[in-house]
Design a protein around this nucleic acid. Structure first.
Length: 228
DNA sequence: ACCCAGGTGGCCC
DNA sequence: GGGCCACATGGG
């Protein structure tokens, strides 16, 4: 990546921060709740994730042990609002069983290893892929692992920073061009999601987009309201 | 009646 | 590596 593009990435962060303000991610009262949210939000609206987490809290099932002791059917019913609830129930049960079996039910125990090692451990659990692993590492474990999502890829593609759609490539783009700062990683990802939700859908709503002048997305296509 | 949401894994070539 | 599919609920 050229020096110009390096600066473009940094200025993108500054522009998003001044436009949207601090996002303060991840929403959640505890590290364990962040882990659950990271799994539950896979291809799901956050509103529905909040419902499911509310269901767990009301049922007093918010610890690794409580989840391990709950029946599959009980969990599935509580998690129903997020969609893909059978898969996510399996993933969450696998996660807490791993935590109990290998780390005495302690998240600190899980995170008490090198980033790459913990990442590999998370990825070995079925249902936890790149984005979920990185969300857990960054927002629950405070480890410097940049989180890439569909919006992130779409946005850097449209900014002309890369044409790659590969998770690992885009992650590397951010990690090799940003200061290795947990707060920057946390905030940048949250800001990209804020931008994505508001302006960078499949059919973009470009009017008032704070990055309009940096965008290389083809103009004058149907649905694209880039100003002439 | 559509379309989409802060993905993942399996299978195919 | 890329393309396609199932997984499932709820809001616009």
């Amino acid at each position: 990546m050229s020096a110009t593009e390096h600066l473009k990435l940094l200025s993108t962060y500054e522009k998003l921060l001044s436009h949207f303000g601090r996002q303060g991610w991840w929403p959640g009262e505890s590290a364990f709740e962040v882990v659950l949210g990271a799994i539950l939000t896979q291809r799901a609206n956050w509103r529905n994730v909040e419902k499911a987490i509310g269901n767990l809290k009301r049922a007093a099932i918010m610890s690794p042990d409580a989840i391990a002791n709950a029946s599959r059917r009980k969990l599935e019913n509580l998690l129903r609002p997020v969609g893909f609830f059978r898969q996510k129930t399996t993933t969450i049960r696998n996660f807490v069983r791993h935590l109990i079996g290998h780390h005495e039910a302690s998240l600190d125990g899980l995170f008490d290893a090198e980033l790459g090692e913990v990442r590999g451990e998370l990825l070995s659990l079925k249902g936890i892929g790149d984005e979920t692993a990185d969300s857990i590492l960054l927002y629950a474990g405070s480890k410097p692992s940049f989180v890439v999502d569909a919006y992130t890829i779409r946005i850097v593609n449209r900014l002309g920073l890369t044409d790659s759609k590969q998770y690992s490539r885009v992650k590397e783009l951010f990690e090799s061009n940003l200061p290795k700062d947990i707060e920057v990683y946390k905030e940048f990802h949250a800001l990209l999601v804020a931008l994505g939700k508001k302006f960078c859908k499949a059919t973009p709503l470009c009017a008032n987009c704070p990055l309009l002048s940096d965008c290389t997305f083809p103009r004058n296509v149907q649905g694209n309201v880039h100003s002439q």
